[in-house]
């Protein structure tokens, strides 16, 4: 699968993408691609540039290079245009709107859609994936547990009917059991055909659900990993420790 993937099936094609914060280049020119129906993980230690890569793809940081979505170039400084094209990010730290209710958060996810019937359809899909959100609909989002907040963040992104979902470390600060639940839902979404690009620090968990993975270190892709060929995690641990 690694070599295959013609331009026709390629969903996301990131070429020579670099990003900087002021004078510091946090991400050196990087190539990443996601094929149709694929779940790709971005692994790497703290400060490797994983979040920066995600923010650069969305155009949330100053960046250079090209990002193509199904062959069409995405604008480089307009996250709202990326979202309109169906490239949707669940940001690190969830970014839910704390003072608003769960229902209002979901409503904002569907901000770009006008149709009521479509809204209901998407909301049903979110509820079937995360039934707990339905129970908490009128609750203030800030009062949800960490895991529920993450479910809400993913649910909110799904409300915009993404064509590819980018997730920045959805396991952050969650209990192991909750992490498995969240990653399980992502895997289910992917099996339905949704391409996913997932940033994750917990490599073993991510490799369980990913079809392919990139390893990032100090702002560079240093390896591309086929999870089926990873016999031991020593090899990955080596990168983390070096």
């Amino acid at each position: 699968m690694t070599e295959a993937g013609s331009a026709a099936t390629r969903v996301l094609d990131v070429a020579g993408l670099s990003a900087r914060y002021g004078h510091i280049e946090a991400l050196h020119p990087t190539d990443v691609r996601v094929e149709d129906r694929e779940l790709v993980a971005i692994l790497g230690p703290n400060g490797a540039g994983k979040s920066t890569l995600m923010r650069a793809i969305m155009g949330l940081v100053e960046n250079a290079g090209t990002v193509r979505f199904r062959g069409r170039p995405l604008p480089r400084r307009a996250p709202e245009a990326c979202a309109a094209d169906g490239v949707v990010l669940v940001p690190e730290g969830r970014g839910i709107f704390g003072p608003m209710s769960v229902a209002e958060n979901l409503e904002l996810g569907a901000y770009l859609s006008g149709s009521k019937a479509e809204f209901e359809r998407r909301q049903e899909r979110v509820f079937s994936l995360f039934p707990r959100l339905k129970e908490r609909l009128s609750q203030v989002a800030g009062s949800l547990s960490g895991g529920e907040q993450q479910m809400l963040a993913i649910g909110r992104a799904l409300m915009s009917d993404p064509k590819i979902l980018l997730l920045d470390e959805p396991s952050l600060g969650l209990a192991p059991r909750v992490v498995e639940e969240i990653l399980g839902s992502l895997s289910a979404l992917n099996r339905e055909g949704l391409p996913i690009l997932l940033v994750e620090q917990k490599a073993p968990l991510a490799l369980k659900i990913a079809q392919r993975a990139y390893l990032l270190s100090v702002g560079r892709v240093i390896a591309e990993i086929d999870p089926r060929k990873v016999s031991s995690y020593d090899e990955i641990a080596h990168y983390y420790l070096s």
Binding site: R55, M58, L60, P79, E80, A83, A84, V88, L89, V90, P91, G95, I96, F97, G98, P99, M100, E104, E107, L108, G109, Y111, L112, R156, A157, S160
Partner: peptide, 17 residues
């Protein structure tokens, strides 16, 4: 509601379009 989304988190609001 869009305004309060911007107030909550500009990046998150932009990522939602």
């Amino acid at each position: 509601r869009a305004l309060s989304a911007v107030a909550g988190s500009e990046d998150a609001a932009r990522a939602l379009g």
